[in-house]
Every structure is written in C-alpha cells, then in structure tokens.
Amino acid sequence: MYDTPNTERAVDQKDIKFSAKGVQVYYGDTHAIKDVDVALEDKTVTAFIGPSGCGKSTFLRCLNRMNDTIDICRVEGDILLDGEDIYDKKVDPVQLRAKVGMVFQKPNPFPKSIYDNIAYGPRIHGMAKNKADLDEIVERALRRGAIWDEVKDRLQAPGTGLSGGQQQRLCIARAVATEPEVLLMDEPCSALDPIATAQVEELIDELRTQYSVVIVTHSMQQAARVSQKTAFFHLGNLVEFGETGKIFTNPEDPRTESYITGRIG
C-alpha cells in the first residue's frame, strides 16, 4: 500500500501504452470530452479523478471502444494503443477489447457458475486447447484475482451467490483471464464496503506488475493510495495530468487545488 505516493518509483521512464491526441466525444448534441491529450504508461496505475459528470468515465470507455454500443455517441481525435489507432476502420473492437479488459462500477457476474464466469472470455477467444488447459487458465485467473482460496471448493456454484466484494474480485479475475494488456476499472469500489475495498485495492497494486491499469475513482484518498499517475478532469477538460504525489501536494492548476481541498466537486 502506498499511503504516501512514492515519487521516486514513478520517475523511471516507462513505455507509453496509450496515447490520446485531441480526443472529442459527443453524446448527441452534448460535447462530453473536449480536446483531451494524454499519454498513459505501461505497468502503471493511472487514476482519473474529478467531480461527477466531468467525463472521466466517458474517456475511460473510449479506450476500449465500449462507447460503440451507445448509438448516439461519437468519438473524434486519435487514440493510439502501442502506436496503432484503435478507431481505425480495420480494427475490430472485439479484438481490441480482448487486449483492453474492463471492470465495471457494479459487480456484474453472469448468471452462471463461478467457473463459467471465468471461462467465458477464454472460451470465446479460443485460448484453451482442452479442458485441462481451461481449468488451468481459470485457476490462474482466480488466483490472480485473489479469490481462489475462497471459491476453490465451489467452482460450480452460481457467481451471483457471492458477496459484493467477492463478486467484484470475481469480475476482476474474469477480466484478467483473457490475458489483457490494459485493465480499465470504472469506479470498481464504489459499490463495496471498506473491507472489500481494501482487498480490491491490494489486488490492483499487485496487478500493476503485469498490466497497465487505468482506474476511475470518486475518492481522492483511493487515487492517492493506488496510483502513480493521476489525471484530473473537470467539465470535459483534462485539467491536469502528472505524478500522483505532485497533483495531491502541489497542483499547478487552481481548479485542481479547489477540488482536492474540497471547494468544488
């Protein structure tokens, strides 16, 4: 746990995983994201913070083209993953989403068994040669989701029967089962109690060693605890982006300061 942000660690140079340039998002006539430029690093936890309705979740959903499922949503500008435009005509969003996994605000396990919940992704992407292979993938994912010990005896029980915190870790395990390179998390702890939140935060920190993690959060404390980089959004603008420690201790923009000190938001 990083109760005080470790600035040294963030200094070492890392590969850029995502880079966005001049991104605009419209919902019908509403201009939801205004000209956002940002570069997200690999093997880093990046937090998006800001008051509700500021566009942080919308921007997150652009990164794996989840906004495609909303008819009235329109995205302009470039978003590059490993240097490739993900909004290119040739890119299949299905392939993209296998690379960029997502965890949602409310735990949403499928009404299937725990095993089938995890195996769903690997199955549709054809990742397992045989049953034993699939079993192994499921076990690895559940272990990485830090829930293996709790469910290993009841893999055939329905996923909806777990507690809220367990469900959310199941959903994280489900997301990592497809071996993504980036993990997007949309307020993953907002529906959880403090103990479950602590477990999930611990998990996020472990995931950082293998994945690039982007987390949207309402809680500034959480952003400070789990992330190395922080982006502050306000009214659709990316106001400030930088080292988490710097944002929270010495913000450049007056709006960031007002938000962090609780005057707006």
Partner: peptide
C-alpha cells in the same frame, strides 16, 4: 450491466446474446 460485462471481455454481440442474455 450484463451486456457491458460481456462486451468488456471482447465478446461479439451474438456471443453476448447467446451466452449471457438468453441464459
């Protein structure tokens, strides 16, 4: 949210319907 969960894993629409929505 069920559909989102499935799309988020990279399922196509028909896979989502057949394996998540219909069950």
């Amino acid at each position: 949210s069920m559909r989102d969960g499935s799309y988020g894993l990279g399922a196509t629409q028909s896979e989502t319907i057949r394996q998540v929505v219909l069950p």
